[in-house]
Design a protein around this nucleic acid. Sequence first.
DNA 1: GACAAATTTAGACTATATCTAATGTGATAT
DNA 2: ATATCACATTAGATATAGTCTAAATTTGTC
Lengths: 145, 145
Amino acid sequence: MDAEAIKRSLEGSGLRCTPQRYAVMAFLMKHNRHPTAAEIFEAVNRVDPRSSRATTYNNLRDLVQAGLVREVAVEGRAARFDAKGVRHHHFICDRCGKVEDIEWCDVPRPASGSLGKRILRECELIFRGLCTKCAPRRHASRSVS
Amino acid sequence: MDAEAIKRSLEGSGLRCTPQRYAVMAFLMKHNRHPTAAEIFEAVNRVDPRSSRATTYNNLRDLVQAGLVREVAVEGRAARFDAKGVRHHHFICDRCGKVEDIEWCDVPRPASGSLGKRILRECELIFRGLCTKCAPRRHASRSVS
DNA sequence: GACAAATTTAGACTATATCTAATGTGATAT
DNA sequence: ATATCACATTAGATATAGTCTAAATTTGTC
C-alpha cells in the first residue's frame, strides 16, 4: 500500500494524516507480525519524524477506535490463572478480551464431513490449544486436564 | 475438593503444602473465574495466613510449573496490534501465548455434518472471534477485515 | 497571518510483575 | 534436643507497560 492510499485511509476514517500517525500506520501495514506498542514506538523512533511515547499510544488508540487496527490478546493486560480442574479450552474474545471456557472436545479426525479441510485446520488449533510451534510432534497427546 | 485432597495434590507434585501455597490453590479451586494475580493476592490476604506479593507470585509460578494451574492469555503481558488488512482470526497458544493468524473462514452453517453440534458451537466462537456477550444479536455480520 | 482545534511532548504517575537480600521454617541427622 | 540446610516468606527496590497532565506546537480554515 502506497503513501497516498494510507493517507486516504486515515482521512476516510476522520483522522488527520500527521507524520507520527502515518508512521505508525505504515509500520503496521508493512510488518504483519503482531508488534507490541513498545516495538512500534522504538521502530518509529529510529528515524524521523520522532514520536513521543504518549503520541505513539494515542495514535494506536485512535487507529483502533477508527477500526483501522486491531488490538489482540488484551484482557486488562494482567495474567489470569485457572486451576486445572475440568479439562476445557480457553477462548479469548477479539473485542473485549474476556476469557471464556469452552467445553473440552477432542480433535475431530475425519476430514471428509460437510466442513471442509480448511475449517478442520482451524478447529484443530483451538481444540489442541497449542500453536503450531508448541504442538506435540506426532500423535502424542498432551495432558490438559 | 477438601483440604486433604489439596494437600495430597500439592505434595504429589513435589511441592510443600505451606499455608500460603495452600491458600492460593484453594482459592483457585473454589473460584472458577479466571482471577488475576492481584485478585488472588487480595483475596488471600483478607484472612490469615497473610502472604506477601512476592510469595503470591512465587506460588503461582510454582503451581503453574507443577502443572496444577494454567496461566491463560499471556503473550508477555503487552498488547499487540495488527493492521486490519486481510481478514483473519487470531489464535492464542495456551502454552507460549504466541498469537497466530488463521485464515478467515465464515461460520459453518449446517449442524448435520460429521462433526457434531458441540464442535460447531466451539467453532462458531473462534470463527466469529467474539465471545458470547460481544456477539451481535441476530444474523448481523460484523466487519472484521 | 490569525485563530481554534487537534496533536505532540516530556515527564509524572499507576499498575503489574520480578528481583534481592535478609529472615523464618521444618525435616533430618546427630 | 539442637544443629543444619534446603526451602519459603518477607519488605522493599526495581523493571516494564501503559496512562495522564499541562504546556507547547502544528494544522486546517478564514
